[in-house]
């Protein structure tokens, strides 16, 4: 019975083997065959992600990263935090109960690249913003084991001493606009200025930040010092906005609490 069932397959394969036997004499035929066979999967899985609307939820309140936050994100990438931290709460009950509402595609729509991560040596950071104080973040980055003796996270004390390079920020924002993030000309032109203003709320530069990025923007001495804007400022500003770019995930959270 199995044999009968297999017969058509076997016959087909026999035919294929013969064709193959001929084709494998031609390197170009082989190359084209490989390209053909290997292309299909990617096309079917990737292309529709751009055409099916429900792929990325509509989040009208979604905002872009400020220049300081974007600079912090670039530092997060530079230091390889994604090697230990995910930013993707999966649709699993335990993750939702531990970390908060599951991550939506909309939340990372301005993330070039995304930082969903593939390993959790440390906890997920998707809902980190506001969970700790700036001061805690600074102290934790300077020496994680000072606050969490069991931690295996590296210390990043040098961030506190590294002045933030802001001259390249207009170029960065322009590049991000080129790949689809809706920065305005005004935002791009003032990027360096705004980065400094956000980390020095008492300076004259601060006014433009709320004007261009909204009243809700965090204007603080993130690293606790008014002396200069450091990489610590930028990274903490970024960490404090994680999960706060849109309120959509919290709105669709099931409200069956009590």
């Amino acid at each position: 019975m199995l044999k009968d069932l297999l017969k058509p397959f076997a016959r087909f394969f026999n035919f294929q083997a013969r064709t193959h036997y001929k084709a494998e004499r031609h390197s170009i035929a082989l190359a084209l065959g490989i390209i053909g066979a290997a292309s299909i999967g990617g096309i079917v899985e990737i292309a529709p992600l751009f055409t099916i609307d429900s792929t990325v939820e509509a989040a009208p309140d979604m905002r872009v990263y400020t220049p300081l936050e974007q600079a912090g994100r670039d530092i997060y990438i530079r230091e390889g935090c994604y090697a230990c931290h995910s930013q993707m709460i999966r649709t699993l009950r335990d993750e939702v109960e531990r970390y908060g509402p599951y991550s939506l595609a909309a939340e990372s729509q301005y993330d070039h690249p995304m930082l969903w991560g593939s390993k959790r040596t440390g906890p997920d950071l998707a809902r980190l913003g506001g969970k700790y104080s700036d001061d805690w973040q600074v102290r934790h980055l300077i020496d994680p084991r000072d606050l969490v003796p069991e931690s295996v996270m590296p210390s990043y004390a040098f961030l506190q001493d590294a002045p933030l390079e802001t001259d390249s920020l207009p170029g960065r924002l322009a590049a991000l606009r080129a790949v689809g993030v809706p920065y305005t000309d005004d935002q791009i032109a003032n990027a360096s200025h705004d980065a400094i203003g956000q980390a020095m709320p008492d300076s004259t530069a601060a006014g433009g930040v709320t004007e261009r990025y909204g009243e809700a923007t965090n204007l603080r001495l993130f690293d606790g010092s008014n002396a200069r804007v450091t990489e610590m400022d930028a990274l903490v500003a970024y960490l404090q906005i994680l999960g706060q770019l849109t309120q959509l995930p919290y709105e669709i959270e099931p409200k069956a609490e009590e």
């Binding site: 992600l49 595609a105 993330d111 070039h112 995304m114």
Partner: peptide
């Protein structure tokens, strides 16, 4: 971000970038 700088931004973002 600049032809004279190392930094670049992926053409894709979010879910498309992940895939």
């Amino acid at each position: 971000a600049s032809w004279t700088g190392a930094k670049s931004y992926s053409a894709f973002s979010g879910v498309q970038d992940a895939m």
